[in-house]
């Protein structure tokens, strides 16, 4: 590969990669709101709603109500909700990580749903 050609390829790649960086980092969502999510778990197998969303840096409060005793676990943020039948357990945290986070009925590793932070 001659030097000029290599330079042109390198230049095209750099422009592309830089443009991608600008596009990605400039358009990312800005959160910072207070968000409250109410989750109802039935029988340690079903959750309503299954999927909830928040933006990065939102202050998220999750209220879990279950009809059975057990642990509802929000992975990634690693937050355990020690549910007691009929009572509501709440945790508040800042959604500093983005991603698709699994919510599980920890005792049986049953997938209940997801928290999606964009």
């Amino acid at each position: 590969m001659s030097r000029t050609r290599a330079l042109i390829v390198a230049a095209v790649l750099i422009v592309f990669i830089a443009a991608g960086g600008v596009l990605i980092y400039a358009t990312r969502s800005h959160g910072g709101q207070n968000v409250t999510i109410d989750l109802t778990v039935t029988g340690g197998t079903k959750m309503n709603p299954t999927d909830s969303t928040a933006h990065q840096d939102d202050k998220v409060t999750i209220n879990v109500t279950s009809d059975t005793d057990g642990e509802v676990h929000l992975h990634g943020y690693d937050i355990p909700f020690e549910a007691k039948a009929g009572q509501t357990v709440s945790h508040t945290f800042t959604a500093d990580k983005t991603g698709n986070f699994l919510i599980e009925w920890e005792t049986t590793s049953t997938e209940l749903g997801h928290l999606v932070v964009t």
Binding site: G20, G21, I24, R28, D96, K97, T98, G99, T118
Partner: peptide, 14 residues
Amino acid sequence: FALAQASTVWYAQI
């Protein structure tokens, strides 16, 4: 999660 912010992941993937 420093390297796993959605924007970083997308950028790395693309």
